[in-house]
């Protein structure tokens, strides 16, 4: 594939951006900022895909990641105690093993990239990537494409089942305690008769 120095410079800056923002995801105090750093990393990779003539995939990446990371930021605000990053935060476990595993992963994959001999068969100039992808998805590989759709539908059903408040066997929150209003205090909004009922055991049915 012949290209000018401009593409190389763009690629290098995008690659640096992708790696640096990817690294910052795990080094920032703010969870919301972390999800937007990840978004920047994804967009940089999407632009690289467009540079590689995979326009459809690059643009699909923009749309998908913009929505996904916004949802992620919303979840951060909903669930994290420190979403805005007002306090320094470093919530990690087994960090040395994790750093080691990351470095080993990079070295092994990087060695493969440097040492392996891959065939040199670039995309021909007259190929229309979007058209060929569309023909493949709705042609020879239609079964794979449709299977992905079915799996996504299954995921939607599973997600609703997992996250719904009430299931077939009663409330999803049975047995859980809300946090106290003060540290070590009584659970907030919990009636005392609920606790007595729980100590009666779950095995037998109550007939009131």
């Amino acid at each position: 594939m012949n290209h000018g120095i401009g593409i190389d410079i763009t690629f290098l800056s995008l690659a640096t951006l992708a790696v640096v923002t990817g690294w910052r995801v795990f080094r920032t105090d703010s969870m919301v900022r972390a999800s937007f750093f990840l978004l920047v990393s994804f967009i940089a990779v999407g632009v690289i895909m467009i540079l590689l003539a995979a326009e459809y995939l690059g643009v699909a990446m923009f749309f998908m990641m913009a929505v996904e990371m916004t949802v992620m930021a919303l979840f951060m605000v909903m669930f994290m105690m420190n979403a805005a990053g007002l306090n320094p935060m470093n919530m990690v476990h087994q960090e040395r093993i994790a750093i080691g595993a990351g470095i080993v992963g990079f070295l092994v994959l990087g060695a493969m990239a440097l040492l392996a001999a891959f065939p040199d068969q670039p995309v021909s100039a007259d190929l229309e990537p979007v058209r060929s992808l569309g023909n493949e998805m709705l042609g020879d590989s239609m079964l794979i494409f449709e299977s992905a759709g079915i799996v996504l539908l299954t995921t939607m059903i599973g997600v609703v089942v997992l996250s719904s408040h009430r299931g077939r066997y009663g409330a999803a929150a049975v047995g859980s305690l809300p946090p106290g209003l003060e540290p070590g205090g009584d659970p907030a909004g919990k009636l005392e008769e609920d606790e007595e009922e729980e100590s009666g055991g779950h095995q037998h049915h109550h007939h009131h």
Binding site: M31, S35, F79, A101
Partner: peptide, 21 residues
Amino acid sequence: LAAALIGIGIYGALSQQSFVM
């Protein structure tokens, strides 16, 4: 570049305590 991204991802997936991270 892909190897670097995968390496950072492995670090994050193994080290973070928060599910979303």
